[in-house]
């Protein structure tokens, strides 16, 4: 498939708006890594507990103080969203208290929590409380059918609990995402998992993330996807997206999407997920890490920490640093030097950069442009 002249022109205008957004870098969302602690020990975790000093975790007062400082210092006119990640957020016994306190500010009443769902399934009364404290969405991780999920996440019975948590989330009216990490041992199950989820959970989003060699997952792991397996994932998404997208205006439908694995090339962007993807780390997405360090998404290498809210004013860091996030020239090495897609992807997702700044893979390059 090739783009029409109209499509090419629209991509150019989109790119100009993206460059303007990078220049302006308005604060539009906060990613708060609430903790590195977790009740599971998944094989693929991108932000594992064993790599950090768990005692350095922010206190509830420090977290609330950070949000209050942001609301006071930043232009909040475009702010829209708080993402809470981990670790497992619900292992923080003070999580609800923190959400209660920060949601006193009207800017912080559109909050999502990404969870494995175990604690929610064990304590379903939490669903009633979360709604009071500005939580609007829940993402539940389900990484295959029962045996595969339980082996990957190393918890017998985990699938049943995560599945139940997702079902209850929909039942309680939360915008619910089923998040699936696609790997070499579950990709053949993904169509069945999609049908099961759509039929019995009815989530708003069925998201697939391609597995990354970060955190506990190694390059040479038997779980890593081959280029042909990446194509298999993309083909599944393209087929389901093409079948369903005309119904996506109806909020009761289940959308499919590829997460932020990377740019797919102009031929495919916008045809496998309901948006045109671009890495927004440090552009409009401020990250507060578990220990108060300032960066962006929690799966990005801690090499890319830009500041520390315990010793610095958050807005000063946001305004005066983050050069590596906003000027991508340093990324243009190797295959990127001659790649025709560079002008649109700017080197892809920052979580795909190793601490030495080299790129570990590119979906577009590794699959020969999905040829």
């Amino acid at each position: 498939m090739s783009l029409t002249a109209q499509d090419e022109e629209l991509f150019e205008r989109w790119r100009e708006r993206m460059e303007a957004l990078i220049r302006e870098h308005p604060l539009q969302l906060i990613s708060w890594e609430s903790t590195r602690r977790c009740n599971l020990r998944c094989l693929h975790c991108g932000s594992p507990a064993e790599d950090v000093d768990l005692d350095a975790e922010l206190t509830a007062d420090e977290v609330v103080g950070a949000f209050e400082q942001i609301a006071a210092d930043f232009d909040m006119s475009q702010f829209r969203h708080v993402n809470v990640t981990g670790g497992e957020p619900f292992v923080r016994r003070d999580l609800l208290d923190i959400l209660r306190r920060i949601s006193r500010n009207p800017h912080f009443r559109n909050t999502d929590i990404q969870t494995n769902g175990i604690i929610l399934a064990d304590h379903p009364e939490l669903f009633d409380e979360l709604d009071r404290y500005g939580v609007t969405g829940l993402g539940i991780s389900i990484d295959g059918l029962e045996a595969t999920h339980d082996a990957f996440r190393r918890i017998p019975g985990g699938f049943a609990k995560s599945f139940e948590a997702a079902r209850l989330s929909v039942e309680h009216g939360y915008v619910t995402t089923v998040s699936v990490v696609a790997h070499a041992k579950n990709i053949d199950e993904i169509p069945a998992l999609f049908e099961l989820s759509r039929r019995e959970i009815r989530p708003r989003v069925f998201r697939i993330m391609t597995i990354d060699p970060i955190g506990r997952m190694d390059f040479d792991s038997e779980y890593m996807l081959s280029p042909d397996q990446v194509r298999q994932v993309i083909d599944f998404l393209k087929t389901e997206y093409g079948r369903g997208c005309a119904t996506y205006a109806d909020q009761s439908t289940t959308m499919v999407e590829l997460g932020c694995g990377g740019w797919l090339g102009r031929d495919l962007e916008g045809l496998v997920r309901p948006f045109i993807w671009h890495c927004i780390a440090g552009i409009n997405n401020l990250g507060i890490l578990y220990d108060g360090k300032l960066a962006s998404c929690s799966n990005i290498s801690r090499e890319f920490i830009e500041g520390d809210l315990r010793t610095e004013r958050i807005k000063d860091v946001w305004q005066n640093r983050y050069e590596r996030y906003r000027d991508s020239d340093w990324k243009r090495t190797g295959p990127c030097v001659t790649c025709g897609e560079w002008a649109y992807c700017y080197g892809g997702p920052l979580h795909g950069r190793l601490p030495d700044h080299t790129d570990f893979r590119c979906l577009w390059n590794d699959t020969d442009g999905f040829a």
Binding site: D7, L10, F11, R13, G242, A249, G270, L271, F275, I276
Partner: peptide
Amino acid sequence: TSAEECRRRMLQWPNPVEYTEYFRTVFGK
């Protein structure tokens, strides 16, 4: 409302990284 047409609407959305009004506009008839 083909996927290709929905993409053209996405590409014209003011905020390039926007993603109910969006869904109505991009995916509606």
